[in-house]
Amino acid sequence: MSSRPLIQLEHNDGTWRKMALLRKLNRVLLGLLIFMVYIILYSRMHKAPQPPIHTDVRAEPGAVGGAAGGVKGGVKGGAAEEEMTEADDDVLVVICAAEERIGGAMATVNSIRSNTEASVFFYIVTLHDNVAYARQYIQKSELKDIRFKILEFNPTVLKGKVRPDSSRPELLHPLNFVRFYLPLLVVKHRRAIYVDDDVIVQGDIQDLYKTKLQPGHAAAFASDCDLPSEVVRTMGMQTTYMGFLDYRKLEVRELGINPSDCSFNPGVFVADIERWKRQKITKQLETWMQQNYKNNLYSSAMSGGVATPPMLIVFHGKYTALDPIWHVGHLGWSPDTEYSDASLHEAQLLHWSGRFKPWDYPCVHMELWEKWYVPDPSRRFALVRPNS
């Protein structure tokens, strides 16, 4: 018999084995390629967000009794300066300083430090472009003796959480959301006070700081229904949840919150930082921001903009009520609605919440705010008055 068929068979068998090996190799390479694509997509989807607060920059010294600590820290665009550190017995106050409202923030700081004997440490939070301006305002004015840090807020953390809204653009300012991230600012302390920049403190801030929180509560706010009766009457439903949430939306109705429940003002509050972290308050607030971004549950057209409703939802029935004298608010609600002299005299804290700010015109009770105003050394910020 001829051996030719056997040779041909062996040849065919070798070719088949090579083809099988190539197919297996191709499958392995394809599997590796798919795996690499998956890893890339996963890493992009789960990429860690940028921290909202740059705490490694902007540590600013004051000049009271020599700054504590001896750590040298560089400030971008400036000389190295001694870093301020907080003491355990400090009253910690967090306040935002937007460029266009910086005079308001400085008036707030001045009123606080002028009406207490306590050791106060200020965390002043601003955006990158305003850091040098805020530092200069303090260091070249009568505020140069305060103890403070300037922290830079990173607005990219709000991407996908805040829906653009042109009805009241000022309510969409990134610094309106700083209060959501308190545990990332206040690292060493268990407690902090947050105040808006349209606030004047007439009492001793130490008394507010010592507010006793009810068991399980992470914060204390002032109820809007505790306002003087003449103010509540003019505001109508803007003192209730109906004024902040869109009850036509199923997600809002499913919360089970009575629309006539009293709202509270998140522009002034005392926070227990440890409880805030344990209860994951920041995560809850971000969740409701994302819900609104998708479903438009509230908007800037409503009274509180988009920063107040998440606070109202997360803290509903879970906050301690402040003594009403520690929040006489809504002085900026109308240029015509004035408070009685008695309520203004008794007030430990005045809040010009609303559209009409005391550094602008018109506004009520401007004289009570202006006594604490610190002129801008650079003259970039100026009061708006009838004769200006």
Rank of each mutant, 00 (worst) to 15 (best):
A271H: 03
R4F: 13
P155F: 04
Y133N: 06
K371C: 01
A79S: 06
W333S: 14
K188F: 03
S260Y: 13
T308F: 11
A79L: 07
D272C: 06
Y319S: 12
V231L: 13
A59D: 04
P51E: 13
V64S: 14
N265P: 02
A132Y: 02
E117L: 11
Y361D: 12
G236K: 10
I40T: 09
G78Y: 10
A98Y: 04
Y137R: 00
R179C: 02
A342S: 14
I102G: 00
R17W: 08
Y137E: 02
D261M: 05
T55G: 14
Q206M: 04
D341A: 15
D129G: 14
R163I: 10
M235P: 02
T282E: 13
S3T: 09
Y181H: 15
L184Q: 15
Y298D: 04
M237K: 12
T116F: 09
K149I: 03
R17Y: 08
M289V: 03
Y293R: 10
F381T: 06
Q136S: 14
A48E: 14
Q279N: 06
W372I: 00
V306K: 13
S353C: 12
V93R: 10
G305K: 04
A59E: 08
L30F: 15
V37W: 00
H330C: 07
S166V: 06
M36N: 09
L30C: 08
P164H: 07
A97C: 12
E152N: 05
N387L: 13
A63Q: 10
I257M: 11
S114C: 03
L21K: 13
P377F: 12
M237I: 11
A222M: 02
T240R: 14
G31C: 02
E230A: 01
K212N: 10
W16C: 07
R101Y: 14
T239H: 06
P155K: 11
D165W: 02
V57F: 03
N115Y: 10
V93S: 10
T337A: 11
W333I: 03
N296K: 12
V374G: 10
G236S: 04
S388N: 15
P49D: 05
V109I: 15
Y137K: 06
I7K: 10
R168D: 13
Y38E: 03
R191S: 06
F148Y: 15
A382H: 11
G329M: 06
L349M: 12
L143T: 08
Y194H: 07
L143V: 00
I112E: 03
L213N: 05
R113M: 05
L208K: 02
D323H: 08
L22R: 13
P335Q: 07
L208Q: 04
I7P: 00
R380D: 06
M235L: 15
G62E: 11
A118Y: 02
R4Q: 11
R190A: 11
E82I: 14
L32I: 14
I200F: 05
E117V: 09
F121E: 00
L383R: 12
K277G: 02
F381V: 01
S141M: 03
E117S: 15
E230Q: 11
